[in-house]
Design a binder for these strands. Structure first.
Length: 125
DNA sequence: ATTCTTACA
DNA sequence: TGTAAGCA
């Protein structure tokens, strides 16, 4: 993870700051957490600590709500996005890496050289 | 002073 | 969602 992403995911804001930044009440912020829409960290004193990403998420939730989408609907949206992310992830894991491609190409050439006459295909090499 | 949990005339 | 109570 890049430093930039790391910073945005650092939970350093108490709920009071989040209230001012999002214009949401503590009641609402905690409620959205109960609905698993946001996952703030907890400090040693059991206080909720939010990251900049949490702020963005809360603002996003507020927008969806203003658009008339209910909590269940918002959940669906995030669950869907989660599935897409996971799909793309498993997709990348199936992808051949550059070193893989090079190894395969080399093996293919070796095979060619074994069955046929490699020197004739590449004289002087 | 702030935040947390729980509960509801 | 608001609000109040009793803790930490």
């Amino acid at each position: 993870m890049s430093e930039k992403e790391l910073r945005r995911s650092l939970s350093v804001l108490p709920i009071g700051t989040v209230m001012k930044l999002t214009d949401l009440t503590a009641r609402q912020i905690r409620y959205y957490e109960q609905q698993d829409l946001v996952f703030p960290q907890r400090n040693d004193g059991n206080r909720r600590m939010y990251s900049l990403n949490d702020i963005d998420r809360l603002l996003e939730i507020k927008d969806y709500l203003d658009e008339g989408i209910n909590i269940a609907g918002i959940k669906k949206i995030y669950e869907q996005q989660k599935r897409e992310r996971q799909k793309r992830q498993s997709e990348r894991e199936r992808q051949l890496t550059d070193p893989d491609v090079r190894r395969i190409l080399r093996d293919e050439l070796m095979n060619l050289g074994g069955l046929g006459d490699y020197d004739q295909l590449h004289p002087g090499s």
